[in-house]
Computed example of a mutant assay.
Amino acid sequence: MKNEYIAKRKSVRKFDATPFSDELLAAIKDKIKAVRPLFPDIAYSVEVIEDKNPSKHNPPYYLFFSSEEKDGCYENIGFIGQQLSLYLTSIGVGSYFRMKKPNLDSKSNLTYVICMPFGRPAEPLFRESFEFKRKKLSEICEGYDIRIEAARLAPSAFNGQNWYFVAKSGRIHCYRKKPNFFMGVIKDKLTCIDMGIALCHICEESETFSYRKLDTAPEKKGYIYMGTVI
């Protein structure tokens, strides 16, 4: 893969509370400024917030992701967040996505979406490819596009992998599973974030990347059409 960390990163949930150097924090903040949004017209913010008194194995730092509430905002945050997760992995920093907002102060005027605890890992940072517990390609796609393998390896809420891809004529049509009644609102949000994460992996493996909703995309029973990678 073009981005080697797609095939070996893992969600890290145990951390060493040793503070980062000012130089390392500055590099992370510079990366935040450089990330590419999926939808440039959606306002969002990413804040680095430090927990001054983390308990054992808890993260010393968090990224808070906030956004204006607009169609596509959750996919946008997932797309941005996974770029940062891959970057953190590349510099030896562990992280994972977390829904619950920690009791820490945020300065953003936008709506909180999700956070990413991060810090020096107190457990292995990488995994071998055979350790990934993922659905087979045949369960999540029709047609062939090598980039869908990168999407297959993407993390998702509860490892649900509630996405589906149809590769046709050089395009990848993207779908998410319709949520059930009981988990409707929560799962709707999570599967949209997950789609953004998967799209980040596809983008990382693409020479060029463009994503938009088409009027001519095929329907997929049991799924909601999200957009198409051109």
Rank of each mutant, 00 (worst) to 15 (best):
R171K: 15
W163M: 10
V185A: 06
P40M: 08
I224N: 05
L153M: 02
E128V: 11
L110P: 04
Q161T: 00
Y144P: 12
K133H: 12
F209A: 01
E75R: 02
C192M: 03
V93W: 00
I224S: 11
F79S: 03
Q83G: 01
R152F: 02
F20W: 11
V93C: 10
I186T: 13
T111E: 06
P121V: 04
P121Q: 04
L24K: 15
G94A: 06
V113F: 03
N159K: 01
K213G: 13
E50I: 05
A17E: 14
E4H: 15
K135A: 12
Y144M: 13
V48T: 12
K135Q: 07
D215N: 15
K29W: 07
L24Y: 04
W163Y: 05
R147E: 04
K14D: 07
N180L: 15
N159F: 08
A26I: 07
R134A: 07
K135T: 12
K221F: 12
I202D: 00
K221E: 13
Y62T: 01
A17F: 10
R176M: 10
T228V: 05
K136D: 10
L125E: 01
Y44S: 02
E149R: 13
G184N: 10
A26V: 03
R212G: 13
N58K: 11
F181T: 13
F126D: 03
D105H: 11
M99T: 14
A198D: 02
P218C: 14
V229T: 06
D215Y: 07
I77W: 04
M226F: 02
L84G: 00
